[in-house]
Design a protein around this nucleic acid. Structure first.
Length: 550
RNA sequence: UCCCCUGUGGUGUAAUUGGUAACACAGCUGUUUUUGGUACAGUCAUUUCAGGUUCAAGUCCUGGCGGGGGAACCA
């Protein structure tokens, strides 16, 4: 049990949650969700679920200049894709604008808020620094009557944008800068995607969030670490506004992954400068990107669980995410054969019109009865260039000159002849197959063949485009150590392979179908009209590791 | 320099709340295998440091050191 669950359990035991546990996921509709949000969603929805409560979806739409309906829609779509349901509890901070206004009036009446005429710049300089106390606003002691009238005029649009603000009257010398008379309302004539032009004053985050939580009966308001310094203010409002609930804010560390950035601003830069094709580029850490890449909701959720929930600002290894995907897809993805870099092999003891049926299991790891399909071994087949070496070390278990290798789900072939072009490149192999070696059997008196390679019948193959993705960045911590994120971009983050040879069944796969290309990795069919597959993640490859070490 | 938070293997997370460091990922070494995949096994930590309390400290106390956050009319 993590520390948040522990706290929730304590609160339940202490009778502080008579209506059950209620959390909320509070995105600002000003961008697309990314892997970091996925963790927050996992936390907010997951904890509510664990304790039999519910999680509200609340859009924190208090800054109309940056927000839009488009983002509201995409966010809802992404949450649903991740497998979470807010059960109709869809709210907006803007639903509470009138209530919030009332709370502000209440604070003014109690002498706890005032209208301040300082400009944005002056407000900043009056705030002081962590080392020096701030200075009181010259308007700090306005009368309640005057403040009430002024605040009403703000709402009625009698002042230009930025002319004044409503501020809480707390303590300009407070050690926590957030408590130095924070701004509650600012004047901004921006068209709001939900309230239109009904308002020209908008509440700040601090004034809206806790009160929105309270209005909804939220018991546990879980947020990231950067709001720790805001908690005293969160609690100050709840304490000084009458007749409002008392949600509890608990902060946790956000998700950081190696080779990844989650800064909205930096991601936007990648999109704008064309380093990626868009927010849904399969290399992007956005939910939409991961989805196109071939990730599954389960993999993402399991990764969150594996990473855990703490207050320590950790940096998780990207392997954690990749491993979660492999683990998930190992069980559910059907296996297929695909040759990305084809080398023609002619099986000379097979006639032109001959085709030997080979049974291939769809997924040896699937639970229950495994289904299978029939492949045809024909005279001409494709194998991977990489799986043949004329001259190879003894550890190389694949096909060599005069050597043997087993064709997966097929037969053992022997390489009799190597055909090269004028430049000396191997363009074709002439092999013979051993009719006695079907079904994985080793004929009496023959040595067992260790190497097994994948292949595709040239007669049956369909051509396809395959996109091989790798980390977007070449550095574990992009943009640190004095480098820019641009400098850290991995130039080989995408490799497009044309003319890959796929086994025929793949042409019928629906968009979004996840498969394992045997010995290569997990791939997903894209929604392109042509046959295109994206590589989500490669398989573990101990041979490649061995070779790298030299 | 002021306030808040945080420090357990390469990376993260756990430890019945004081009882002798567990799990995952990564690495390495093997076994099994019609995927050099999967699965399985082995290996990898004197818990940031210095004191203190105690029969006993990762857990408690004192002090130091390291890391993160904080001065938007953003969220």
């Amino acid at each position: 049990m993590n520390f948040v669950e522990q706290e929730v359990e304590n609160d339940m035991a202490a009778g502080r949650t008579p209506e059950g546990v209620i959390t909320r996921f509070p995105p600002e509709p000003n961008g697309y969700l990314h892997i970091g949000h996925a963790k927050a969603i996992w936390v907010d929805f997951g904890i509510a679920e664990k304790f039999g409560g519910r999680c509200n979806l609340r859009f924190d739409d208090t800054n109309p200049a940056k927000e839009s309906q488009e983002f509201v829609d995409s966010i809802k779509d992404d949450i649903r894709w991740l497998g979470y349901d807010w059960q109709g509890h869809e709210y907006y901070a803007s639903d509470y604008f009138e209530a919030l206004y009332g709370f502000a009036v209440q604070l003014i009446e109690k002498g706890l808020a005032y209208v301040c005429d300082l400009s944005a710049e002056e407000t900043r300089s009056y705030r002081g620094t962590p080392h020096e106390p701030g200075k009181n606003s010259p308007n700090r002691d306005r009368s309640t009557t005057e403040n009430l009238a002024l605040f009403k005029s703000m709402r009625d649009g009698e002042f230009p944008d930025g002319a004044c603000t409503l501020r809480a009257k707390i303590d300009m010398a407070h050690a926590n800068l957030n408590m130095r008379d924070p701004v509650l309302y600012r004047i901004a004539r921006a068209h709001h995607h939900r309230t239109g032009d009904a308002w020209c004053i908008y509440p700040m985050y601090d004034f809206a969030h806790g009160q929105s939580d309270a209005i909804e009966g939220v018991t546990h308001s879980l947020c990231s670490l950067e709001f720790e310094n805001h908690r005293p203010l969160y609690e100050w409002f709840l304490e000084h506004i009458d007749g409002i609930g008392s949600p509890r804010q608990i902060e946790f560390a956000r998700l950081n992954l190696t080779y990844t950035i989650t800064s909205k601003r930096k991601l936007q830069e990648l999109v704008e400068k064309g380093y990626v094709t868009g927010w849904d580029d399969p290399r992007m850490p956005t939910i939409r990107g991961l989805r196109k890449r071939g990730y599954t909701p389960d993999a993402i959720r399991n990764m969150c669980a594996a990473a855990g929930l703490t207050k320590f600002n950790a940096l998780h290894d990207m392997h954690l995410l990749e491993n979660a995907l492999r683990e998930d897809l190992n069980k559910r993805a059907d296996r297929r054969m695909a040759v990305l870099d084809p080398l023609k092999v002619v099986i000379t003891n097979l006639a032109e019109d001959e085709a030997i049926e080979c049974e291939a299991v769809n997924n040896p790891e699937a639970e229950g009865e495994g289904t299978s399909r029939t492949l045809h071994l024909t005279r001409e087949i494709w194998i991977e260039q990489e799986d043949f070496r004329e001259d190879a070390p003894s550890k190389f278990f694949r096909l060599k000159a005069n050597g043997d290798v087993r064709l997966r789900y097929g037969y053992v072939i022997h390489c009799d002849e190597i055909i090269k072009d004028d430049a000396g490149n191997v363009v074709e192999l002439r092999c013979t197959y051993d009719p006695e070696s079907g079904g994985g059997k080793t004929p009496e008196g023959k040595k067992k063949v260790k190497g097994i390679i994948h292949w595709v019948s040239a007669r049956d193959a369909v051509d396809a485009e395959v996109r091989l993705y790798d980390h977007l960045f070449k550095e574990p911590q992009p943009g640190t150590g004095g480098r820019t994120i641009e400098e850290d971009l991995n130039p080989d983050s995408i490799q497009v392979v044309q003319g890959a040879k796929l086994e025929p069944a793949l042409s019928a796969a629906a968009a979004g179908t996840q498969v394992q290309f045997e010995r290569l990795g997990y791939f997903v069919r894209t929604d392109d009209e042509d046959i295109v597959f994206n590589r989500a993640v490669s398989l573990r490859d101990s041979w490649a590791k061995f070779e790298q070490k030299g």
